[in-house]
Amino acid sequence: MNPPDVSVVIVNYNGLRFLPECLDTVRAAFVRHSVEVIVIDNASVDGSQAFLRTRPDIRYIESTENLGFTGGNNRAAREARGQVLLLLNNDTRCDGNLDGLVDEALQPEVGVAGCHLVYGDGRLQFSVGFEHTPVRIALSWLGLEKQWRTPDVFRRVQTRPGFYALSNPSVDWVSGACLATRREVWERLGGLDDAFFMYCEDVDYGRRVRQLGLRASYRADVTVTHYEGAGKAWAGRATVLRTLRSYLLFVTKHFGRGAASRLALSLGLVFSAKALAHAGRAVVSGNPERRALQRDKRNGYFQAARQSFAAWWKQTPVVAR
């Protein structure tokens, strides 16, 4: 049997409610390119495994442990036979044809390609970003990132809606929620860096692609719905801590331990301020649900501040996952 043109790799962890739509739409998303779909389950406990075992249209890998987004993709990619790897989040819906994204990834000067992402309600989802310098990471947490008139130094992601209306052949990185790369580029880079359990692995991959002299490219004419967050009031404490860990790892890797230590101190101060702000909101809020949310945010940011200061003091990026 001839190998497929594309290997779609999906990492699943407790995503049963999204899987049927994701798998049904991804098969219909390729017209000109042949495709195989590889799904790896990261030790889900929501019934995902039983469901995936019934799908004859996928190649299924069942992990006995949670390998994270990065480890899951790396494990599944070892089984891929396609010329192009297309990493796709499990909480996605393919809204049209993905052939154009594959065509982009096949360009010899392109190392990685991403597409136009939208939330479930149709709102634009920011899927292209700026280089994650230590200064930009620290400033982006001040809460000004989505202000359109804010200078780009305050942004990790491109937030101007007009940007996403046109394809861009040269960007810093694209979202790992839907990311296409040639398998030979993936193998040259050794896949995603396993040090990143989740978060920032796509930023790191984009940087390493550019270090090879290749481009990261954005296709505006390819759209995928990504249900990220699914209406949650906030990302949650674990997400903040994992993001902090990944940022410190990224800066240590690409800018040095001293830069990471200074970033840890800066983020510790920012997180402390955010925790105090949420503590104040919890006190004045008359709504019990909103008060509980503000307290949860307060506790999450206080914990992130403590871990940031600990990383600064010990000059190490290793904080809890």
Score class of each variant (00 low, 15 high):
Val8Gln: 05
Ile10Cys: 07
Val11Lys: 06
Val11Gln: 09
Asn12Ser: 08
Asn14Cys: 10
Asn14Gly: 07
Phe18Tyr: 10
Leu19His: 03
Leu23Tyr: 04
Asp24Ile: 05
Thr25His: 06
Val26Trp: 13
Val26Asp: 06
Arg27Gln: 14
Ala28Asn: 07
Val31Ile: 07
Ser34Ile: 00
Ser34His: 09
Glu36Met: 02
Val37Glu: 05
Ile38Val: 10
Asp41Tyr: 09
Asn42Thr: 08
Val45Asn: 13
Gln49His: 09
Ala50Tyr: 04
Phe51Asp: 03
Phe51Ile: 08
Leu52Gly: 00
Arg53Thr: 12
Thr54Gln: 14
Ile58Val: 11
Arg59Glu: 15
Ile61His: 11
Ile61Phe: 11
Glu62His: 13
Ser63Phe: 01
Phe69Gly: 00
Phe69Asn: 11
Thr70Cys: 11
Asn73Val: 10
Asn73Thr: 05
Arg75Ala: 09
Ala77Lys: 05
Ala80Gln: 07
Leu86Val: 11
Leu88Trp: 02
Leu88Asp: 09
Asn90Asp: 15
Thr92Gln: 03
Cys94Ser: 02
Cys94Gly: 11
Cys94Thr: 09
Asp99Asn: 03
Gly100Met: 07
Asp103His: 01
Pro108Val: 14
Val110Phe: 13
Val110Trp: 07
Ala113Gln: 08
His116Cys: 05
Leu117Thr: 01
Tyr119Thr: 07
Gly120His: 14
Asp121Leu: 10
Arg123Gln: 12
Gln125Met: 00
His132Gly: 02
Val135Lys: 14
Val135Ile: 04
Leu139Tyr: 04
Leu142Asp: 02
Gly143Pro: 00
Glu145His: 06
Lys146Asn: 10
Trp148Ser: 15
Val153Thr: 15
Val153Gly: 04
Arg155Lys: 15
Arg160Lys: 15
Phe163Ser: 15
Phe163Val: 09
Ala165Ile: 15
Asn168His: 15
Pro169Thr: 05
Val171Tyr: 07
Trp173Ser: 05
Val174Arg: 04
Ala177Leu: 11
Cys178Asn: 14
Arg183Thr: 12
Arg183Ala: 14
Glu184Met: 10
Gly190Leu: 12
Gly190Arg: 00
Asp193Ala: 13
Tyr199Glu: 00
Tyr199Met: 13
Val203Arg: 11
Val203Glu: 08
Tyr205Val: 03
Tyr205Arg: 01
Tyr205Glu: 05
Gly206Ser: 03
Arg208Asn: 10
Val209Ser: 03
Gln211Met: 11
Gly213Lys: 15
Ser217His: 12
Tyr218His: 07
Asp221Ile: 12
Glu228Cys: 07
Glu228Ala: 14
Glu228Phe: 06
Gly229Asp: 06
Ala230Asp: 14
Gly231Asp: 09
Trp234Tyr: 14
Ala235Tyr: 02
Ala235Pro: 02
Arg237Gly: 13
Thr239Trp: 11
Leu244Phe: 02
Leu244Thr: 11
Leu244Val: 00
Leu248Ile: 02
Lys253Trp: 08
His254Gln: 00
Gly256Phe: 01
Ser261Asn: 02
Leu263Ile: 06
Leu267Asn: 08
Leu267Trp: 04
Gly268Lys: 01
Phe271Ser: 01
Phe271Gly: 00
Phe271Met: 12
Ser272Lys: 01
Ser272Ala: 09
Ala273Pro: 00
Gly280Met: 10
Val283Gly: 09
Ser285Met: 15
Ser285Leu: 12
Asn287Arg: 13
Glu289Val: 09
Arg295Leu: 12
Asp296Cys: 01
Lys297Val: 10
Gly300Thr: 06
Tyr301Phe: 14
Tyr301His: 05
Gln303Tyr: 01
Arg306Leu: 13
Ala310Val: 15
Ala311Glu: 03
Trp312His: 15
Thr316Val: 05
